[in-house]
């Protein structure tokens, strides 16, 4: 006992390891407790209940003629709805999947071939691609062109050129009737 540096009153030699154990246990509880206490702070930054509860959006499609496109808002994001022409559907379906960066068939991306519904946010850094209005540049594949960093999407909203890694996302949607759809 004389060789222990800390004075102890009648502690048996194994008292050292017991003291170590207490130190490690207390430190572990302290670290875990701090981590648990920090979580509410971090989680408070995640979407609040009212943000999460944002309802779905219903859209009436009867006024959208063939070849036209409309943009609606869903969860603060633009959603592109394009009434595709037969030529556009044809172009989207006659693509060799092997040459796509993010291979997906057009059949999987559109429940009804004439209605293409996409989240209108470039998968690169979140800009809104152009191609919804008649005068907009649509890119060389007739779909959309993102002006920020030059990504080009085809008539199925699939990435064909530029830095974006993925196709334009397809939101979950249900056709309520032939001319109305609920997004979300």
């Amino acid at each position: 006992m004389a060789e222990t540096s800390t004075p102890s009153q009648g502690t048996p030699p194994e008292g050292e390891s017991r003291r170590d154990f207490l130190l490690y246990a207390a430190s572990a509880v302290g670290v875990a407790g701090t981590a648990l206490a920090v979580w509410p702070l971090i989680h408070s930054m995640n979407p609040a209940a009212d943000t999460l509860a944002l309802s779905s959006t219903e859209v009436d499609l009867s006024a959208v003629a063939e070849g036209q496109a409309i943009t609606v808002t869903w969860r603060g994001k633009p959603v592109f709805i394009r009434h595709r022409t037969a030529a556009e559907i044809e172009a989207a379906r006659n693509v060799n999947l092997a040459e796509l960066r993010d291979p997906e068939t057009d059949e999987k991306r559109a429940q009804k071939p004439e209605w293409l519904i996409l989240v209108g946010i470039c998968t690169h850094l979140g800009c809104i691609p152009m191609g919804q209005k008649p005068g907009d540049p649509k890119g060389e594949y007739g779909g959309w062109f993102c002006p920020c960093h030059g990504s080009v999407y085809d008539t199925s909203g699939r990435i064909r050129k530029g830095p974006a890694p993925l196709n334009l996302a397809v939101p979950t949607y249900t056709f309520l009737t032939d001319t109305s759809v609920r997004i979300g």
């Binding site: 971090i42 930054m45 995640n46 979407p47 943000t51 944002l54 969860r75 603060g76 994001k77």
Partner: peptide, 17 residues
């Protein structure tokens, strides 16, 4: 990104924080 935004896009919670 969702944590940074506090939502599904840059919006009021983002501006506030």
């Amino acid at each position: 990104v969702t944590l940074l935004w506090g939502g599904f896009s840059v919006d009021n919670p983002t501006l506030n924080r």
